[in-house]
Design a protein around this nucleic acid. Sequence first.
DNA 1: AGTGCGGCCTGTCCGC
DNA 2: TGCGGACAGGCCGCAC
Length: 272
Amino acid sequence: MPELPEVETVRRELSEELSSKNRQSTLLGFTIYQKQLRVKVPEKKLRALIGLKILSVCRRAKYLLFETEKGHIISHLGMTGRWHFSKEKTKHDHLSFDLSDGRRLFYQDIRRFGWIEFSEDYKQSKWYKKLGPEPLEAESFNAEYLFKKSRKRKVPIKAFIMNQEIVVGVGNIYASEALFRAGVSPKIFASKITREQANKIVEAIEFVLQSSIEIGGTTIRNYASTRGNKGSFVDMLMVYGRAGQKCKKCETPIRQIQQVGRSTFWCLSCQK
DNA sequence: AGTGCGGCCTGTCCGC
DNA sequence: TGCGGACAGGCCGCAC
């Protein structure tokens, strides 16, 4: 499901629920219902965290980070992962945490593409070291950076901005949306973009991610936040999921193509 | 090293 | 109504 705005929305809610001033949660226990997610749930490592407080809930790229005194529980939501509070286990709940105030926090994941990890020092881990800059941090992610990185890269620009080593958090929806707003064709090679186009792409990525965060992300089918809210950015989508419908700017029918195994939506006349 | 593809899972929708 | 196939917002590992 989730790209950066959806993960950030979940993070904000979890942070309030677990580690705000008036709510400090301690982990009293946990239950694993389905050990086999994308990687196995680290049962022994989690057991060592019983009795510890959740100090904060942070995010890096599309990863959620639950901070404890001994290290971080890392959660990636894959396509359909979700954290929700409930009294009882429901379908596709694979793990639950019992909290000191009596609440239970469940990890639900229909397709089981997500995973849960624990790390004493996540900044040293393999996945973390490969991550590119955060798209909303302008000191590290800007036109000059994107332009330099794109030289000699023979992949379509759409695949390039979805590469988490280049910039994190941009998935299939926001890649199409950002390129529409930048007026850049998804098909051109990364190596062919101009400085000006790099600038427009960076601005468009910032714009779509920031505006989506402000209204709770995008819900296409499964996604809902921890509190069960749907994201309303779906109403702002200019191209994603609109194949055959009129472009909202110029009324040309929106096209759908396959790129690197994923659907891309774009407007032939608005994007060059 | 960079690139493209298949695989991991379950659910839903479409056409026959 | 039932069935097969395609597709779904992510990422990894492998072969070239």
